[in-house]
Design a protein around this nucleic acid. Structure first.
Lengths: 337, 337
DNA sequence: CCACCGTCCGGAACCCTTTCCACATTCTCA
DNA sequence: TGAGAATGTGGAAAGGGTTCCGGACGGTGG
């Protein structure tokens, strides 16, 4: 049994294809009479318009791409849900692209998406390397950045104020009396890494402390690197650590415990992201909460806006406010979940 | 600057469109001479064939859908990576569909995917309710099930032997001397729930114990339900618990600790899945490892196979073997990571 | 020398829908 | 009542590829 086309419907309903098209798209005129006949035929024939044909005719695909480093990193699923829910509510389909933190993989996807003619892209770039590619893409297809900036390429962005977040985290530790506070930063070259480091330094300076290079290390946002950097920092006799994301913070906690120490008694830890995990581990992780899901939703909102207006209008930077969530890992007054 | 089409290329290369098509698809004959001219023109004009037009002409979209309950559940990202890597390697694009454990949402996606004319679907069904819909879809589009069965609808499946896994988990606890072993099962109606319960009961019976209804509870695979069920089971004086997934197991551990108990000293816990988290928490979670990533890869393999052969040939059931990973949460000999 | 085959290539039909245009009918209001 | 608007409809072009078909050409074997 072949799939029925708009022609079959037209035939069955005794009208022209153009009339059928008008009815199912609710555009232009159609009498009560023919509308009903068409609807009935559609029903009977189980007609489903072909997306491909429609795309070809309209030049729009009803598809947006979500490009991110690795969905396996617990930060991204929440973002993905936000993107998908918002896109799906607006009638769009989401295609998933994991770049695996690999610039060439990312470049491959960029090419693919051009060919696919996706209507928009939500991008968390894995490195600045493909700046050219993406900025070139923006000329045709709206792109909005989440989580990270991509300097000099795309200015349509949605993310939290990372400087402020890191500042909050560090100040929390300072207020608890810590003076030797280590930093486990993210990978070099990412705006998030830089911003969070800046917030950290800013808080220190404000407290009259000079940032100390020997207390600052860079990880790769993964558990194992948090664990390893913590070991190194322990030797520097830090009493507290701010980790640039929760996975590394959790790694750090485990490193302290494995070395026979206790968190927060011997070393206090604060993270960044507030992934689900943060409240499940023991001690509960004090961290900077990002409205991650919301970020995904807003990214799509901006995308839809730009798609509607044909990408005219100034790019906009949406900045969300991070908040401090106090749990047990930093000690002091905190006694949260 | 408009996008260039195959016609532009043909013009630039001084050949017919059909020749261009033959060259870029590497099908049919083309002389060295014209091949080079075409390739040069493609290069110069930055020609990218339109996916939509191609789909329309060939009837294939180069797209597979990944339908799952919720990417936010840490089990699924690994699966998703497997699916995406395999699909992408084969030149396919993955579209992401979160059903949010909602049958009507799932039905909505089923309809959408029909319209999209995806070439295949990797499905983790959220309930048996849409059995009809999916089995109907299978007539046109290959569907392979992962993680869960969908009785009487689709027989092309890839997942682990859940009975064996649960059996392993329970036997581990039995061998450590436990006799009052609680079960925190999954939601009713899922094959995984049933199978894991069966494996649990089987191990008990084999040890001469009769499964005790009062020690068996059902959760929803989420942390909070693990926590809550554990509280109930504690009142039944269990000395060990097998939770049907890791998230609930972690909830259970936390419940024990919050009640002042210790894991595994007072109550031993074994989970199922071996999500990344399992090795990061303290105590390390003893659990049944599933080759989740691999599952995704194999699902796509099966899909491609069925797509190639036009879905003829008997559906196949791929059964992967789960393995026991011993860490700290069950006590005894285990001293893993 | 002729028949046939393999190679090469262009023309045109086809995939399915949207949309523009033209025409016909009915309404509305001066 | 008649002009012009509003409404309803069908035909056909357009969108960008793939693929079938048939013709041209050169080589090979009988």
């Amino acid at each position: 049994m072949k799939r029925s086309t708009i022609k079959d419907v037209a035939l069955a309903a005794g009208v022209a294809v153009s009339t059928v098209s008008r009815v199912i798209n609710d555009s232009g005129y159609a009498s009560r009479e023919s509308r009903q006949r068409v609807l009935k035929a559609v029903e009977e024939l189980h007609f489903q318009p072909s997306r491909a044909a429609r795309s070809l005719a309209t030049g729009r695909t009803g598809t947006v791409a979500l490009v991110l480093p690795d969905i396996t990193n617990p930060f991204f699923p929440a973002l993905a849900r936000g993107v998908e829910d918002a896109a799906s509510a607006a009638g769009y389909t989401v295609i998933l692209c994991n770049t695996d933190n690999d610039a060439s993989q990312e470049a491959m996807y960029a090419a693919l998406l051009r060919q696919q003619r996706v209507d928009g892209v939500v991008l968390t770039a894995c490195s600045p390397n493909n700046r050219g590619l993406w900025s070139q893409m923006t000329e045709r297809i709206p792109v909005v950045l989440t989580d990270r900036r991509l300097e000099g390429a795309i200015d349509e962005t949605v993310f939290v104020d990372n400087v402020a977040g890191a500042y909050l985290a560090t100040r929390q530790l300072l207020e608890l009396g810590h003076r030797r506070i280590g930093l486990i930063g993210g990978p070099l070259g990412l705006s998030t890494t830089e911003d969070r480091q800046r917030g950290y330094e800013q808080a220190l300076r404000e407290a009259g402390l000079e940032p100390d290079e020997t207390l600052m290390r860079n990880g790769d946002f993964r558990y194992a690197s948090g664990y390893a950097r913590m070991r190194e920092l322990a030797e520097q006799h830090v009493t507290a650590v701010f980790a640039a994301n929760d996975m590394m913070a959790i790694g750090a906690i485990r490193a302290v415990e494995d070395a026979g120490g206790r968190v927060p008694d011997h070393i206090a830890v604060v993270g960044f992201d507030d992934i689900l995990l943060a409240s499940m581990i023991k001690p509960g992780l004090t961290t900077i909460a990002q409205p991650t899901y919301q970020m995904g939703v807003m990214a799509v909102d901006r995308l839809l806006e730009r798609m509607r207006t044909d990408a005219t209008g100034e790019p906009r930077q949406v900045v969300l406010e991070p908040t401090l969530v106090v749990r047990d890992s930093c000690g002091g007054k905190g006694r949260g979940s």
